[in-house]
Design a protein around this nucleic acid. Structure first.
Length: 423
DNA sequence: TCTGGGGTCCTAGGACCC
DNA sequence: TCTGGGGTCCTAGGACCC
């Protein structure tokens, strides 16, 4: 049986989330900001029309914001993840085989649905998600993931498509390819776009028709796969079960520059705790961890950055062990006379919690401690992060990342959950 | 004053082994 | 002077994604 893929993509996802509960944000330009309220990372259509770009620095946009009364929001990831789950729940009614591709995109396997019913099916998906969650989506359908992506992009752009485009065995496929800039292809970034265009390949049709060996030699197997997919040969499968993560990192810029060792250690402990929580959530343990510190590379201050590698004798996800080692490392890395902007942690060697290699000279972690940590996790899950925590971890400090214009935690607190009325 | 934070995959080249 | 060949593992760097 031929494969059929759909890509369902939430439109301007973070902005759409904010609009679900705050009606005053509808029909006016809205932007959502990165950590520390630094960059624009999501824009409503109205904001796009005003010229806001992804990655614009907010401090350069003040005039435009004032002039057009643009609503400016800090990001609220806990809330976005929650709405993301709701969208996926609705999608699961339309296909048992789903890949959660990113916070705002899902691939669905629609194999078996009759060709002539595909577009209508797409429209039903779109309507139901919007009615049940309040989030507008676009749907692209094709014989491969690349083609579904491409169809999705066109569905967003084209007024005629009204948010749904099916290019599966379509007589208009070539037209769709021709209308797609080569730089808009999934897997073609800035570098490849430049290379392709300087070789006279400007759209997806020209890319599909380029000699295979040339594409392979200039863009490795990655490019070759994209090309095959455009020809309708599926070589990127649906990943229903996410593969185990190979790296787990935590890195956040501070809300201000830190110059004392005391505060840097406090931040280190707090980030190490976050890292431990991430590991525990995935049931993984860290064997090797890289810790780095960095001054503000945009500033005119003297610059310094350095990193240290921690090897745990036995892989662990116990916050107190990780915190201790990370704080020690930061003591070594710290140099007086610099102002630090960020700390990063990156667990590069991981082991599954239930098959950690034991060390000859170290006692295996005692199960009492494991049980205690599990209870702490559960409490924090129910009552909010930080309810119970190691003493060195702070929840309120002047160096913390800023989210000064954050919306209320509409759906992610136990108390005061408002009900959304949609449709 | 203010410039994100996660991730993945692929390849080439070096070290090392037989 | 000639300077194997095949295999594995690791790392750094470059490309990409959202």
């Amino acid at each position: 049986m031929d494969k059929i893929f759909a890509l369902v993509d939430c439109n301007n996802f973070y902005v759409s989330c904010e609009r679900v509960f705050d009606f005053t944000l509808r029909d006016r330009p809205v932007v959502v900001l990165s950590n520390n309220d630094g960059l624009v990372i999501a824009r409503s259509n109205e904001a796009k029309a005003l010229g806001f770009k992804m990655g614009d620095a907010v401090f350069q946009m003040h005039d435009l914001i004032k002039e057009h009364q643009v609503a400016v929001m800090s990001s609220n990831y806990a809330f976005y993840y929650d709405l993301c789950d709701r969208v996926r729940e609705v999608l699961s009614h339309f296909s048992p085989r789903i890949e959660k591709y990113s916070i705002d995109e899902c691939f669905l396997d629609l194999s078996g649905i009759a060709k002539e019913e595909l577009e209508d099916y797409g429209r039903r998906i779109k309507a139901k998600v919007e009615k049940w969650t309040g989030i507008p989506v676009s749907v692209g359908i094709g014989a491969t993931k690349c083609l579904a992506k491409l169809a999705n992009k066109l569905a967003k752009k084209s007024v005629k498509a009204r948010g749904v485009l099916d290019v599966y065995k379509s007589p208009h496929l070539e037209k769709a390819l021709e209308a797609t800039d080569v730089g808009d292809l999934w897997g073609v970034g800035q570098a490849y776009e430049g290379m392709l265009k300087s070789n006279g390949i400007n759209n997806a049709l020209e890319f599909r028709n380029a000699p295979d060996h040339w594409v392979r030699s200039r863009m490795t197997v990655v490019g070759a796969r994209i090309q095959s997919e455009l020809k309708g040969v599926s070589c990127i499968g649906l990943e229903e079960i996410p593969p185990l993560q190979k790296m787990v990192g935590t890195a956040q810029g501070f809300g201000m520059l830190i110059d004392t060792l005391e505060e840097l250690k406090e931040a280190a402990a707090t980030y190490a705790n976050k890292e431990a929580i991430k590991l525990r959530k995935q049931k993984q343990c860290v064997k090797e961890l890289v810790v780095w510190v960095q001054t503000n590379s945009f500033g005119r201050d003297p610059q310094y950055g350095n990193k240290a590698e921690i090897v745990f004798p036995v892989a662990t996800n116990d916050p107190s062990l990780i915190i201790k080692k990370v704080v020690n490392a930061v003591e070594m890395l710290y140099k007086k006379g610099y102002r630090y902007k960020r700390i990063g942690l990156n667990a590069t060697k991981l082991e599954l919690e239930n098959c950690v290699q034991e060390h000859l000279f170290v006692k295996p972690e005692d199960t009492k401690r494991q049980n205690l940590l599990r209870v702490v996790d559960q409490l924090n899950e129910v009552s909010g992060a930080g309810t119970i925590r190691t003493a060195s971890v702070v929840i309120d400090a002047r160096w913390m990342t800023r989210f000064s214009k954050q919306s209320p935690h509409y759906t992610t607190k136990v108390k005061d959950i408002p009900i959304a009325r949609v449709g």
